Simulated scan of single mutants.
Amino acid sequence: MPYRRRSARDRARRELGQNFLVDRGVVRRLVDLLDPVPRPVVELGAGSGAITRELVGSGRRVTAVELDPHWASSLRATFPEVRVIRCDMLDFRFPAAEHAVIGNLPFGITTSVTRRLLTEKTWSEAVLLVQWDVARKRAEGGNQLNAQWSPWYEFQSCGRIPARSFRPTPAVDGGILKLRRRSRPLVPLDEQRRYQRFVEAVFTGRGRGLTEIVRNVTGYRVRNLPALPRDLSAEGWARLYTGTT
C-alpha cells in the first residue's frame, strides 16, 4: 500500500511546507545556542540533515525525527550513528532521560508543536526555528499561552533569519525561539492545572481593565495592577495567582 498522509497536521505540512535550511551559518548558530553540556539531543523535522550533520560534528548523541520516508531513509544511510525515528513529530514519544530539543519546524504547525513540547517533562532546553512573528510574539509574552506556561519556562527570541536562508524560499522570514525550563519554578508544578485555569479565567473574564476583571473572577480587589492581562510579567502572574487563590 502506498504511503498516505493521514491527518490535518500532515496536510498543513504539505500546504505550508517545511523549508529546508541552506545557510550553514544559521545551522551553526542554532547548534551553538544549545548548552555546551553534551546531553542527548532530539531533532524534530530533520529533513535533509543539515542540522543533523552539525549536531553529529559537535559530538552529541542524536535522535532524528522525520515523517517523510525518503528523508528518513536518507538520514539513516548518511548518519549511521544517529537514531532515526520515522513519525509525525506531534506523535513522537520523547525520551524519559534528560535531553535537549532542536528543530526547523514547519511554519504551519509551530503552535501545535510548541504546545506539545510544553507538556513534556524531560527536556531542559529547546532551540526552534519558527516563523519570525511567532518567535517575536512568544518572547515578548502578553498572550495566554505564555502566561499559562511562564512559571515553568522562559521564552527567548534569538534573532531573525531571512527567507533566503531556506529552500524553497518562504514568503516570510524565520526566527529562532529558545525555550528553557526554569530551575526554580515561579509556581509549584503540582498547581499547574489550577494555575492555568486561573490564567484562562482572567484572560477571558469580563471587566474594564485588569483590576475589575480580577475582582470579578476572584472576588479580590488587587491594587497596582497594569491595565490589561497582556501587560503582566511572568513574575506578576505568579504573584497575582498566589495572592488571590
Rank of each mutant, 00 (worst) to 15 (best):
W71M: 14
V187H: 07
A64Q: 10
E98I: 06
I176A: 05
T114G: 10
P80E: 01
R93A: 10
R193F: 06
P106R: 01
I51F: 08
T119V: 15
C87M: 09
R221T: 12
E154I: 13
R138P: 09
R230N: 09
L34H: 00
E98P: 12
L179N: 09
F79D: 04
L189G: 15
R13L: 11
R182P: 09
T204I: 08
T111I: 14
E66I: 08
A234W: 03
G243K: 08
P80Y: 07
T111E: 11
Q144N: 15
L67R: 12
S183F: 03
D23L: 04
V62K: 06
T63S: 12
L118T: 07
E235A: 08
V217M: 03
Y241V: 04
S157H: 12
R115M: 12
Y241P: 04
D10G: 10
W237M: 01
E15D: 14
T114V: 15
R206H: 07
P170H: 00
T122M: 08
A227K: 10
R230G: 13
S7E: 05
N216R: 09
L189D: 13
L186T: 05
R39Y: 11
G174R: 00
A96T: 15
L179D: 05
L90N: 05
A50P: 05
I176P: 09
R164N: 07
T245R: 14
D231V: 06
L21D: 06
W152M: 13
V101E: 02
V65S: 03
